[in-house]
């Protein structure tokens, strides 16, 4: 699945004022590419993701999806955010299986797939737990299983690990890379964490503050498979980090130091 985004603009009215959130974004994403959208808050990176997800509609511009033959198709999307999307009244297993069922997959095979994904995430024995009975890290694993179990072609991730503590964040990044390495889905990953973007992505797209525009595109030279825990200490990583740091809005960079 390749994605072509052209001339994307998004504006809305807030408190009687016209706000331009996105001002002309063009983006081509290749099949199996892992792309990180990086920027300060309010830079419209989440808006780009929500537009691609179809949750919001663009003011101007087009988003098209093509299959490997170059034909325009309706994509199978998976979506995960920082906020928990697990339904609190469903057990872990039910949550993971539900989205597959919604997509018309039979109950038996949906549940079998859900079980095997929960197993892969190391959640054996927690299938019939409700989200409120799971720890934050476990809930993220269930959410990840939910995201992958219904076989999407494109993963849209909006700061999925944003609320986790530093250590758990690395562990979850590692999990994500492992499953991504297995079948190389196309991934769009929104984050404001420079290290996270560099660790995960093939390409980092840096956005400016409002109105959001693409400021810089960085091809990450780190080899695959990545080591989430050690790559960050390599000189290549440090150089890239410097480039991204300089590219981010000076104002917000100052605010963060």
């Amino acid at each position: 699945m390749t994605i072509k985004v052209s001339g994307l603009r998004k504006s809305f009215v807030s408190r009687g004022k016209h706000v331009l959130a996105l001002d002309g974004v063009d983006l081509d994403i290749a099949q199996g590419e892992f792309v990180a959208l990086l920027g300060p808050s309010g830079s419209g990176k989440s808006t780009v993701l929500n537009l691609i997800a179809g949750i919001e509609s663009p003011t101007e511009g087009r988003i098209t999806f093509f299959d490997s033959g170059g034909d325009e198709v309706t994509p199978k999307l998976g979506y995960m955010t920082q906020q928990d999307s697990l339904l609190p009244w469903k057990t872990a297993l039910q949550n993971v299986a539900l989205l597959s069922k919604v997509k018309g997959i039979g109950a038996a095979s949906a549940e079998a797939a859900a079980k095997s994904w929960l197993e892969k995430m190391g959640l054996n024995g927690f299938q019939s737990h409700y989200p409120s009975e799971l720890s934050g890290g476990m809930r993220k694993r269930v959410a990840l299983a939910q995201l992958l179990a219904h076989q999407p072609d494109v993963l849209l991730l909006d700061e999925p690990f944003g609320a986790l503590d530093a250590q758990l964040k690395l562990v979850m990044q590692d999990e994500l890379l492992k499953v991504w390495d297995a079948d190389k889905k196309t991934v769009l990953f929104v984050t404001h964490d420079l290290s996270e973007a560099l660790t995960l992505a093939d390409r980092v797209i840096v956005f400016t503050g409002r109105p959001g525009k693409i400021k810089l595109v960085l091809n990450v030279p780190l080899s695959r498979p990545r080591n989430v825990f050690k790559d960050r200490f390599t000189p290549q990583f440090q150089d890239c980090y410097q480039v991204l740091w300089d590219a981010l809005d000076p104002a917000s960079a100052n605010a963060e130091t």
Partner: peptide, 15 residues
């Protein structure tokens, strides 16, 4: 967020 997650997957209004 629950509604969005279902919408992205292509769930119908009834679902």
């Amino acid at each position: 967020i629950y509604v969005d997650t279902f919408k992205v997957v292509g769930a119908t209004e009834l679902q």
